[in-house]
């Protein structure tokens, strides 16, 4: 491992660090793959803990946070040296998390304990544990930082947790196995994917903060059994004009019109497409494909898959370091 890190350090020294880098967690391979998003070349791969899944990055781009699910902790790496700096207490089986826009704290879903754990990223201590529904997974924070949203896969709810007092203020029932939740950049709307329900619930937030379920988006692809259309990861463009939804074993990413909420197109990607991340300029969208062990690069403007890049075993999460 040490040799690998040294090699990596040399590579970085040689090429400079100005290029964007994508970091992909490989759930089964226990590694993180590093990809140069200018050349789309794999730079290196490093040990990311046991069963690394959720992955995110600090606002300054310096720290990489990885949910090491089987280690029951969040591992923190330097995005420059790729060295493991320290680990954060996360509660049992952390799967997904969301970072406060300020970089502190980290809100973590503990799949086995029916809890959301709030961890201070500076003091490395647990600030709060919030009981939520069964099998918490999806995590999001409202752009104004007032609410953290958690989805619970077996309870089938989106829980609206106040960041001020850590109390749940609202619960919205959605379809079976809600996996992921994503806000529009203006914070007025959320999308919740239901893997087994096969839908994306659209929840509008009223002026007084009350969430209302306004629509359920359904999917249909000719020649694909409806049961395989399983929405998981969601990404919304900065201007809110398009929503991308990863459809798991359907091997497609749906493109939804942000205004009409109609599905415009389906982009064929790798197998068992799971999570996604934009490059900072939003020119590209990267998808993790858990069964084909690669990521697909989508040209966002053209809504076309342009490249696939082999990574480690069972890629799960992806994040791209800002400039």
């Amino acid at each position: 491992m040490k040799t690998l890190l040294l090699t990596t350090a040399l590579v970085i020294a040689a090429t400079g660090v100005s290029a964007n880098r994508a970091f992909v967690t490989n759930e089964r391979g226990n590694t993180v793959t590093v990809i140069d998003t200018n050349t789309w070349q794999v730079e290196t791969e490093f040990f990311g803990g046991n069963r690394p899944r959720g992955i995110t990055i600090s606002p300054d781009g310096k720290l990489l946070y990885v949910c090491a699910s089987d280690d029951d902790q969040v591992k923190v790496f330097s995005t420059e040296t790729l060295e493991e700096l320290y680990s954060l207490p996360s509660g049992a089986d952390p799967e997904l998390f969301v970072l406060h826009p300020s970089g502190n704290p980290l809100y973590i879903a503990n799949e086995d304990d029916n809890l959301v754990t709030v961890t201070d990223t500076e003091s490395h201590t647990v600030i709060a544990e919030i009981p939520v529904g069964v099998e918490p997974e999806g995590m999001a924070i409202s752009p104004d930082s007032q609410f953290v949203i958690n989805t619970s896969e077996t309870t089938n709810m989106a829980h609206f947790i106040s960041t001020a007092d850590y109390e749940i203020k609202h619960n919205v029932l959605v379809d079976q196995r809600p996996r992921y939740v994503e806000y529009t950049p203006d914070g007025k709307r959320l999308f919740v994917s239901a893997e087994i329900g096969g839908t994306v619930s659209v929840i509008d937030v009223a002026e007084d903060g009350t969430p209302n379920l306004v629509k359920k988006i359904h999917f249909e692809v000719g020649g694909v059994t409806p049961e395989w259309l399983q929405p998981v990861g969601i990404r919304v463009t900065q201007d809110g004009s398009r929503i991308f939804v990863a459809l798991g074993p359907a091997n497609r990413v749906a493109v939804i019109d942000g205004a009409t909420l109609e599905v415009k197109d389906y982009i064929l990607v790798g197998q068992r497409v799971w999570q996604m991340a934009f490059t900072p300029d939003q020119k590209y969208l990267l998808t993790t494909n858990g069964n084909s062990n690669d990521i697909t690069v989508i040209d966002v403007a053209k809504e076309k898959a342009i490249q696939s890049i082999p990574v480690g075993q069972q890629p799960w999460g992806v994040v791209v370091a800002p400039h």
């Binding site: 109390e167 203020k169 619960n171 919205v172 969430p211 209302n212 379920l213 359920k216």
Partner: peptide
């Protein structure tokens, strides 16, 4: 049923 059941947690 398809209408969201939105309930305050407390009370």
């Amino acid at each position: 049923l398809w209408v969201a059941i939105t309930l305050a947690f407390t009370g």
